[in-house]
């Protein structure tokens, strides 16, 4: 089992900002759009270096999505940015018709996803966006796990032709992936190999899953940790290979259980290879105000919760 360490903590949104700064230098067709949240999206460097390729839309997200779709007609690669809540649920029909159905090369890049937005509370804590976005035919949905991976994903999606939803967040979390990694869309990353239980995690929950793996190891349990950074297209092979080895699974996501990563895994299990599975996620509930740490504990999204579900999955497998 590989031991993951970190020397610093950073927010994934800053990884996005760093990726955008590089795209500003390397990809002349990349255009950034924002709906009055430039600071929150860490776009300052991109805007400073490429003022002519930044479009301030004001608090008008629907118009921003439409303008983004239009910009692709002419070969631009628009990165439409706002909070996850306003870049998914608020503009679902605009994304559906003008971006997904029209197959436009728009990158919808959203921060402050999930509970870890914290004190602003449930109005801003979207926990349904992965589900909504993955249901759209042709939409690629990516939810990277740390600063470095978010930066790499940001750069990678500019080279990919088609609509993308890239989701990241606000809190500072450990930076534990390689700084110079190449991001492969749709290819799950096996963080740690194991034999007793497969833990499939995405976004902020990947670090929690790594910690859970260490706790389980102390109990003599070998957990396989897999980072599903791409929710769609889904890496079915990675799931099948792992569960055939371990015989049980746990999903972990900062998202509703209904319709999220776990349900994508469950589809594979039900249709192709049945094993017991447990979900770590928000169970049909809105969030609330609090610190990110308090909220992750209250809603059951910590390493301890993953350990508990892993033990339960193993018990079911052995019963």
């Amino acid at each position: 089992m590989k031991k993951y360490t970190f020397t610093e903590k950073k927010d994934t949104r800053s990884g996005f900002g760093a990726g955008m700064q590089i795209l500003g230098q390397t990809s002349p067709n990349v255009v950034a759009l924002c709906a009055d949240l430039v600071g929150s999206l860490k776009l300052d460097a991109f805007i400073k270096e490429n003022p002519e390729r930044f479009i301030q839309c004001g608090i008008a997200e629907a118009n921003m999505i439409g303008i983004s779709a239009g910009l692709t007609i002419g070969g631009k690669i628009p990165f439409a940015t706002t909070f996850a809540n306003f870049g998914s649920g608020r503009v679902y029909d605009q994304i559906r018709q003008s971006v997904a159905y029209s197959n436009k090369n728009v990158k919808i890049c959203v921060s402050h996803a999930g509970l870890t937005l914290g004190e602003d509370g449930a109005t801003h804590q979207i926990l349904e966006d992965l589900g909504m976005m993955k249901m759209l035919p042709g939409m690629t949905v990516i939810n990277p796990c740390d600063y470095n991976q978010t930066k790499a994903a940001t750069i990678a999606i500019a080279d990919y032709e088609g609509p993308v939803y890239l989701r990241f967040g606000r809190p500072v979390i450990p930076v534990f992936t390689d700084a110079d990694q190449k991001f492969e869309i749709g290819k799950a990353w096996t963080v740690n190999e194991g034999t007793d239980v497969s833990i499939f995690a995405t976004g902020h929950l990947v670090w929690e899953a790594i910690q859970a793996g260490e706790i389980l190891a102390e109990k003599g349990i070998s957990a396989e940790i897999i980072n599903i950074h791409t929710i769609k297209p889904f890496d079915t092979e990675a799931v099948l290979t792992s569960i055939k080895k371990t015989g049980c699974a746990v999903s972990a996501e900062e998202h509703q259980i209904n319709g999220g990563l776990g349900d994508s895994i469950a589809q594979v299990l039900v249709q192709q290879y049945y094993v017991p599975m447990e979900y770590v996620g928000v169970n049909d509930s809105f969030g609330e105000s609090g610190t990110p740490t308090q909220l992750m504990e209250k809603y059951g999204l910590t390493a301890a919760d993953i350990v508990e579900k892993a033990l339960k999955a193993i018990r079911r497998k052995n019963s």
């Binding site: 118009n63 439409g66 779709a69 692709t72 007609i73 002419g74 631009k76 605009q94 018709q97 436009k104």
Partner: peptide, 27 residues
Amino acid sequence: IRIASGSLGQGLSVAIGAAMAKKLNGD
């Protein structure tokens, strides 16, 4: 055809984006 339309209210935004792309392209 360059965009799907039918769900109303979206075309003017798309047209603005296409117009901005033309400006960026010197078209």
